[in-house]
Design a protein around this nucleic acid. Structure first.
Lengths: 123, 123
DNA sequence: CACATACTGAACCATATGGTTCAGTATGGG
DNA sequence: CCCATACTGAACCATATGGTTCAGTATGTG
């Protein structure tokens, strides 16, 4: 049986995991509007500083957010990653999906044609 | 401070989580080429039937795969969800991201203009 | 019937996740 | 100096994840 070897290293695991939490998606949207401190984000999403710090760390690890500490305040802003790989993966999948169902359509067409032509198995 | 209420219910959590595993992404790509049984998938990704069954269940929960058991064999195929919501979320984010950095460009332009015009604060 | 195949479910395991509290440290303001 | 603010890190907790083994059940096949 055909088996797969090691897949190429990618950021997809980390970024999709980062995106799988509604709070973190919210943080990204928020930072898309304005930079924010940990305190501000924690306030908006009703959680402790420590909790928010963890979310920000996850986003930072995934390259989606960068932070900079000036004085007491750590300012968070959108990071360098633009979800290009992620968008590309999803787009490729959507094409696969469409192709797969187009193939099904072909099968259906074949069946319809057979029916119309009156062809049948065994007499 | 402005706080957020309950976010609208969405499939994003489940589907992004499903996509965050390299094996599950592989399964989706595989099913894009041909339907497959649990045994076939387990063989290709070098894991136990039980392990693969769990992955397939996760994908099924997320609506990305549907399965049908005929006789002993459970056949897996791509599900109804085409990652439309997911693609849309990412696309919206990418626009936010671009807008955010365009805004930064404007700031930079302003600074450049001030410098060129010789304008300075205080004297 | 006997046996192999294909899956299923329970139990287990190590680690990760999403949150908290509590006890710091560092910084800014009066 | 004193106090409030802003963050940080460790510890803890419940639950989820990604895998396994083992013991079934159900289904094909000779």
């Amino acid at each position: 049986m055909v088996q797969y070897g090691h897949p190429a290293p990618t950021h997809l695991d980390a970024s999709f995991a980062a995106l799988s939490d509604v709070t973190r998606r919210g943080v990204l949207e928020q930072l898309g509007r304005a930079d924010a401190s940990i305190t501000e984000l924690a306030g908006k999403f009703r959680m402790t500083l420590t909790g928010m710090k963890k979310h920000v760390s996850v986003l930072e690890q995934a390259g989606l957010v960068t932070t900079e500490k000036v004085g007491r305040v750590r300012t968070c802003r959108l990071g360098a990653r633009r979800l290009e790989e992620e968008a590309a993966w999803i787009e490729r999948y959507r094409e696969l999906w469409a192709a797969r169902f187009d193939a099904l359509d072909v099968v259906v067409d074949e069946l319809m044609k057979e029916k119309r032509d009156g062809r049948q198995k065994r007499s």
